[in-house]
Nucleic acid binder design. Structure first.
Lengths: 341, 341
DNA sequence: CTGAAAGCGCTTACAG
DNA sequence: CTGAAAGCGCTTACAG
């Protein structure tokens, strides 16, 4: 890339200054006289100078890059968050390594290994991962989780952690309260983890709260835990419950993709949505706005979550005091056709 | 990350060899006696040694990282390709920088800048981009395009280029031939670029070929070019054509997302799919299999395309002779409900 | 505010 | 097959 590499020395000679000075204008940290700065900048431009990231990193130990670990990159909810992160990082000149783990333990380990070698300045974790906590706590870089949290209950939040979420308990409560008010009493719950001291637990709590408030008992037969949050899993769950002959009048899936898969199964099995079965999803992905029927959902501000995560991360690595490291953004309950709008 | 960094010197001392030797086992290029190798490996393990990517890169100019430029990461077609690339690269210990450009000229430039600084060993381009050719030809790294091609007609393909596509002309032909045989004579065409010496041109050619063969004249009113391949654009096109009162009996969208958006608009406007209007998409994303009705489409082997791209790239940077650098993978025409199955 | 110099942790001819 | 040494292109105290 570029014929002969032009180094800081070339620039220094061209500008008639020392190499250290060029370095200083590059990192514009210390004071450099405006005049000198100008001269150096001109020289850099004339020579088409590009700093060598390796050399910079070797000395400063700052890689100008970050890493993102995502459970499922094909889920549009996550890709939208990634877009938010990437755009923000790019503006600050950071590169973003991406690792798609499919929740595979080994891939997570390998990803972390690569990130260590690359000396990323920070790691983002999107979605639920088993046991990442263990691996990450002895890393010394900041970690920001998005949509999920690292379960560190009972202890003070380590200064290198932050999380961007919505209030998952209230979100799940909203969805269920809405369904209950519609007269639904038999809601199938499609969940991933529910006992993780984390998002899953909060959502399940919201589910329980709403039912309790409406005087409805929980029916174990309607609960599906540990599901992968894919279209396929939603689809299969509905077939399963139908085959078992369990009666139900609505579905609350903790992911739009899963809800969409469920709707497809309902259609194949001859249930009408929303007449027979009302469906509520979670995430707010675009596909839910265009599906037939369109999907009622909890809209997480995905792009904003990504942006916010990146900004906080940037603050953390610049050693700024970040006092609010457990950020809870507003969600929006979006009513659409799948619940009869 | 790691308390005190253990360097190659520490390993050398621990193993009782020279630093150069440690380096040699690390890069297992040159011959090292099995005995020495063993000793070094043991020492590395004992000390928990992690090579410093900066130092390696500075000397060898090999970053062990690649860059991916994608037009729209929220499109599941691309994210599946990315999964294929990432998985393959990871196995070889490469990190993958991701840049989501949304086809914005400036973001592309900035992305390329960052990649130059990071000295990525190769660049993948997914989807259509305007004028990337210009920027990339003076880069000295290999470039592999996936789903699209860099238009270099009339010249020999530069040795640092490769492309992974399907036969887009035949694919589009298949879709249109199928529609024509169903008796459709007024197919709305939803395209992005059509005059780009590239994928778009090929697809449009296939469209024309099929119509010609069936003795159907092209109706300009049915042609939508330069569309963004999103759900929204598909949706809007249908509203536009409906408002103009143009008669049509089917839709061929060059992207599943666009087709899905179109189906939503049709539903809102009271058209029945497939009874009134047949719809065919392109890409083969999962969402099309679960939509209601399910979507007939051209299935591009997305994951395989990503894997193949990464493998070719690895071959190219390892200076292996790659004779087949314009790889054309098989597509599959998948018939579903949106055309009456 | 700025220059000279040391050194970050590797790789790679150069000898042997 | 292996060791000693130079050097990759920066950054950063240290002086001034």
């Amino acid at each position: 890339m570029g014929e002969k590499t032009v180094t800081i020395k070339d620039v220094a000679k061209e500008a008639g200054v020392g190499a250290g000075t060029v370095s200083r204008v590059l990192n514009d940290a210390v004071h450099v006289s405006p005049k000198t700065r100008k001269a150096v900048e001109l020289a850099m431009q004339r020579l088409g100078y590009k700093p060598n990231a390796f050399a910079r990193g070797l000395k400063s130990n700052n890689s100008y890059s970050m890493g993102v670990i995502v459970a499922d990159i094909t889920n549009p909810c996550f890709s939208k968050i990634i877009r938010g992160i990437e755009g923000t990082l790019q503006k600050s000149g950071f590169g973003m390594f991406l690792f798609d783990t499919e929740m595979d333990e080994e891939k997570v380990t390998q990803s972390i290994n690569i990130m260590e070698e690359k000396k990323v300045s920070g790691i983002f974790i999107l979605g639920e991962h088993f046991d990442t906590k263990k691996m990450l706590t002895d890393l010394y870089v900041p970690v920001v989780t998005v949509t999920s949290q690292i379960p560190i209950c009972g202890y003070e939040l380590p200064s290198n952690f932050a999380s961007i979420t919505i209030n998952n308990e209230r979100a799940a409560y909203s969805a269920m309260d809405f369904l209950c008010k519609k007269g639904k009493r038999k809601t199938v719950l499609l969940m991933s983890l529910a006992d993780d001291e984390n998002v899953g637990k909060a959502r399940y709590q919201g589910y329980q709260n709403a039912l309790k408030e409406h005087g409805i008992e929980i029916d174990q037969e309607l609960l599906f835990f540990n599901q992968r949050l894919s279209m396929e899993s939603g689809y299969e769950c509905i077939y399963k419950i139908h085959e078992k002959g369990v009666d139900f009048d609505s579905i609350f899936a903790v992911s739009d993709l899963t809800a969409l898969g469920a709707m497809r199964a309902l259609s194949e099995l001859g249930y009408a949505v929303p007449e027979d079965i009302a469906v509520v999803g979670f995430d707010g992905i675009e596909q839910g706005a265009y599906s037939i029927p369109s999907l009622t959902t909890i809209d997480q501000p995905r792009f904003l979550m990504g942006e916010t995560a990146a900004k906080i991360m940037l603050d953390m690595i610049h050693k700024k005091k970040v006092l609010n490291r457990e950020i809870i953004l507003d969600f929006e309950f979006v009513e659409r056709e799948s619940t009869g709008k």
